[in-house]
Structure formats: C-alpha cells, structure tokens
Simulated assay, not measured.
Amino acid sequence: MGLDLEALREAVKTHGTVTRVVIAAIKGSSPREVGAAMLVWQNGQSGTIGGGVLEYEAVKVARTQTVRSRLTHHALGPDMGQCCGGAVSLFSEVFDANAVDALDDTVIVRSASDGDIPLSVKRLLAAARGQGIAPQPQLIDGWMVEPVHKPARTLWIWGAGHVGRALVDVLHPLPDLAITWVDTAPERFPETIPTGVTSVPAAKPAELVRHAPPDAEHLVLTYSHNLDLELCNRLLSHDFRIAGLIGSATKWARFRSRLAALGHAPERINRITCPIGDTGLGKHPQMIAVGVAAELLRPARQNELKKDLSA
C-alpha cells in the first residue's frame, strides 16, 4: 500500500482542494492498517480509514482544515468510544493542483512541522534504495514516509457487456490491480470509466494481445464466441499469468477441441480456466463478478503470485 497518486490527481482535478487523511501509526487494535487513507472534499469523500467515529470526526476536521498538514493522535476507546481499544495517529494534508504536481513519483516524505529531514528518515530511504525496494508506509520521528503506490498486478478484461461492467465495478477499487478494459467500439463502454481503468476500443481486439505484458492476467467475456476463441488462441500463443473464460462446460469442451486443432498442447490449454467465478453463486453478472473477485484474492492465488514475482 502507498499513496495513490493517480486517484489524488483525479480527485483534485474534479473537486479542487482535497484533504488526504492517512493512518500514520497505530498502537494496539485499529480499524485499518498504517497507510490506509481517504480523500475528503467539501461535499464528499473516497476511501476509508476504518469507518465509525474516527472516520466521522476526521472527515469533519478535514473539511475545515486551514493548515497545510497536521499530525493528530487519537485514543479510540477513551476519546471515541470505539471498541478497538488502540490508538491511531493521523496525518492530514491539503492538496491543490500545484501541491500534487510537486509530489515525487516514487516516495513521498513530509512533516507537519518545518525543519530538515532527520537522519533516521534519510537512513531508512538509503536502506530502501540499497535493497531496491520501496519503504513501508510509516511515521518516523514525526515524518510521514509513503511510497507512491504502483499496482502489482495487471488485469485485462476483454468485453464491456453486463459481466464485464460488473467485473470492473467490483474490481477497480482494489489497490493492487491496474485494469485494461477492451471492446470493439467506444459505444460498448459506459459513459464514465472508473479511475485506474484504461478503456481501449479496438475494431480487432485480438490484435492487442501481443501488447499485453507476459505476466498479465486475463478475463475473456466478449459478446462473440468466435472472438472469445480467437482471444484464447492468441493468449496461448503469447504468454500470461492466468486466463479465465466465461462459459459453460459445453462451451469449454468445444473450445478445447478447437484450440487443440489450432496446435495447442493439452497442458497449455489447461492453463485457461473455464467457467470463471463460483458457479454455486449463480449466473447473475454481479454474482459472477463476486466469484471472480474472490478467486483473484484468495490466499492461495496471492501466494502463487508472490512466488512468480520472486522467481
């Protein structure tokens, strides 16, 4: 987790001045982890630091904040009557377009008070650079250190019909997914595309497969069985981390036969999952989307991805 620079830019562009509130440190039990953040503007907000009284009070203060940044400390039990029982430090910072443009695109370091960056922070940053890793979000000697969030996973969704839209609705808020959404024409997409989703209208979608990263994940669910088949064919000739195809057991049996006739080995074809989601949930688009999301997020899948990334 880290500072979602794209979401911050979009919020400032849409709403003007925006206050970002991030959990800087915790002691004991807390509704969210260090680095969890929300964006607050005059008539709305996005994200969450855990809900309840803590968030309610933080939103109220953020909308009237006059200083550039502030660091506050809250005992959840005595101060707010929450049963978590821990204590939370919040770092709140006001952003306009100029402030966002001034941010670094790798690691953000700032304090609620003036002064030079302390040696402890410099050592932390030097150690992170030496190891080639981003530092974890943390508060150190009154300074908030956050990496700029970079999605760890690339997901291509092929098809903007009912199921495609349901999938995007469910998956786009997840912080570790960068979604590319493909269909045959602009009018196939909804008028508003969520932040973090790149829509790509293409008359011949299968031609785009070669541009997908070899570690991308794919969900194939277009309006055309012929296009679905061609996408599966191109994916098997390309490379991918995982691929899923919407359909029934009958559809998949026919596809397996046709893909074999196109020269793909059985073990290669078996890398495609069909059907996708949890069939026990039902066939409603949102039910399919929930099942797919659960599959993408299950611990076993996360462990597989971590092994792939460390290989």
Rank of each mutant, 00 (worst) to 15 (best):
A112T: 08
A126M: 15
N43Q: 12
S111H: 11
D105V: 10
S111C: 14
G130N: 13
L124V: 12
S29E: 05
L54G: 03
T48N: 02
S113K: 12
I108D: 06
T48Y: 01
S89R: 07
A127K: 11
N98M: 13
G130W: 08
C84I: 01
G28Y: 01
F91T: 02
H74A: 06
E33H: 13
E57I: 02
K60L: 06
T19C: 08
A127M: 10
G51D: 01
S113F: 08
A97P: 05
D101W: 08
L76E: 05
A128D: 10
S111T: 07
R32A: 03
S69C: 11
T17Q: 14
D116W: 01
A102W: 01
S113R: 12
S111A: 14
I26E: 00
A126Q: 15
T17A: 14
L39M: 11
R68N: 07
F95K: 08
R63Q: 15
A58S: 14
I49S: 03
G47T: 03
V100D: 13
I108P: 00
E57Y: 07
L119W: 01
S30V: 06
R32I: 01
V100A: 14
L54Q: 05
Q65H: 11
L76R: 10
T72K: 11
V94W: 07
H73I: 02
Q82Y: 04
V107Q: 10
A126L: 13
A97E: 15
F95Y: 15
A25Q: 13
L124C: 10
N43F: 10
P118F: 06
H73D: 11
G85M: 02
A127H: 08
K122W: 03
G50S: 03
I49T: 02
A62T: 03
V22P: 04
V12S: 10
G47K: 00
L125T: 03
G50D: 00
H15D: 06
A87H: 09
I108M: 08
I117M: 14
S29P: 06
V21Y: 01
S29F: 01
V59L: 04
D96G: 12
K122L: 08
R68H: 12
S46Q: 05
T19P: 05
G77C: 04
A62M: 01
Y56W: 11
T106I: 09
F95I: 10
I26M: 02
L76W: 02
G81H: 12
A36M: 07
V61A: 14
K122P: 00
A62V: 00
V94E: 07
S69W: 07
F95Q: 09
F91M: 08
A127G: 07
S120F: 01
D101H: 15
L76C: 09
S69Q: 13
I108G: 03
G51S: 02
I108L: 11
V18M: 05
E93L: 08
S120V: 04
A58F: 07
R123I: 12
G77T: 09
S120R: 04
A24C: 03
V34I: 15
Q131K: 14
L119Q: 05
G47M: 02
Y56A: 12
G44L: 06
A58K: 03
T64F: 05
D96F: 13
R70N: 11
T66Y: 08
V40I: 07
A126I: 05
A87C: 09
V94Y: 06
E55Y: 01
T17W: 07
V67I: 09
